[in-house]
Computed example of a mutant assay.
Amino acid sequence: MHPTFLRHAAALALAATGAAIGAPALAADVNIYSSRQPALIQPLLDAFTKETGLSTATIFIEKGLEERVKAEGANSPADVILTVDIGRLYAAKQAGILQPLADAVIERDIPATFRDKAGEWSGVTARARVVYASAERVGDEPITYESLADPRWKGRICIRSGQHQYNVALIAAFLAHHGEEKTKTWLTGLRDNLATAPEGGDRDQARNIASGQCDIAIGNTYYVGLMQTNEKEPQQKEWAKAIKVVMPAFETGGTHVNISGMGLAKNAPNRDNAVKLMEFLTTDEAQRIYAETNYEYPLKPGVALSPAVKAFGELKPDTLSLDDIAAQRSKASALIDEVRFDEGPQS
């Protein structure tokens, strides 16, 4: 039987049993625990195997990844942790399931802003938290994150739950820039500018703009690419046509970005092979594949953007360290509840 078929069959079987607690005996050269859907990372793993001859196996764990690895302890087969959002990476570090890695290749290829200061995680690709604006009802004026609380947007903004990890990260970045008092005032103003109470996901906000429910929304860039190419649900292409991407910025910085990232598992049984995979993920080829597959931005400088991502407009990322953002997440979450953000407008 062909080795590629065996690898794919193993990955699917492991993904299907990912919810079961225990430490499965994995036979691959590199074992990956991932909160990203297997289909999103399989092209990368195929390229890695083709280049190195090393096999991979993936367990998909959407929720509870940190708890599972911690429960498995020294018997865990996990070599590499792949996840999305600085919050998930920070949680993995806080759970003690990662180990520091000082690696010259990763440090050369990935800017320090997108790496843990202690070396326990590194970004792989980036996505920007931007404004979806009605192509018909919103002009070309620049928008800052701070201006989203301006009364001119009253009743015109849609957003998913403030407690979703993507919004918590954005609000944590606002805290890092402006401090607690100003953030609370801004968050209250943004809440009262909402057209309705937060609901749904980022794509639903584009739908709401298309239907006229609101004029602008906050969403991640990659969802636009996913909508533009969605053959299974062609109505999403219409939602994408109804919006344009506006790159907002902080008044004291750039556009907020978040990352997909990786970390070396604390008890990695195949450490050397795991490091080879992590180094591969920073190569030009892997950065291109990962970014194009997911409509994200390569983190390695000099790697060309896909045409779809380039069409979003020029991205000038905020230079605020993701470490600094992660440190503000708990306070951000508390403020979201304090102003009762998810209840929607109150004035």
Rank of each mutant, 00 (worst) to 15 (best):
K316E: 01
H256G: 06
A286S: 14
N273C: 10
T293M: 11
A304W: 04
T252A: 14
T293E: 10
H256W: 05
Y297F: 13
A268S: 14
I259P: 08
N267P: 03
K276S: 08
F312T: 08
V339M: 04
M278H: 10
I289M: 12
R288D: 04
S330C: 03
V303Y: 09
L320D: 00
A286F: 05
I259A: 09
L335E: 01
V275F: 05
N270I: 06
A268C: 10
L320C: 07
D324A: 15
K331A: 08
A291S: 15
A311D: 12
T282V: 14
A274K: 07
K316F: 00
L322E: 09
D284N: 09
Q287W: 07
G261F: 00
F341P: 13
N294P: 05
D324T: 13
K266V: 11
Q287Y: 11
G254L: 08
D318R: 02
S260N: 10
S333N: 10
P301C: 07
M262D: 01
L320T: 08
L305G: 10
K300I: 04
T252I: 01
F312S: 11
G253C: 06
K310R: 13
G253L: 03
M262W: 02
G261I: 00
A311W: 11
K266Q: 14
G302I: 00
A334W: 08
S306N: 05
E314Y: 02
G313V: 03
P307I: 14
Y295M: 07
I259F: 03
V275N: 13
R271C: 06
G254Y: 05
E279S: 15
F341A: 10
D337S: 12
A327E: 15
Q328S: 02
S333D: 10
F280Y: 14
A308G: 06
L264P: 15
T282S: 08
P307D: 14
V303G: 12
E296P: 03
G253E: 05
A332F: 00
K310Y: 02
A291M: 05
L264V: 13
T283L: 01
E251T: 08
V303D: 12
L264S: 12
I336G: 06
E285A: 15
E314K: 14
A334R: 12
T255G: 07
E338K: 04
D324I: 00
K316D: 01
D318L: 12
R271S: 08
I325G: 04
I336V: 14
A249E: 03
A326C: 07
V303A: 10
P317N: 02
A268K: 01
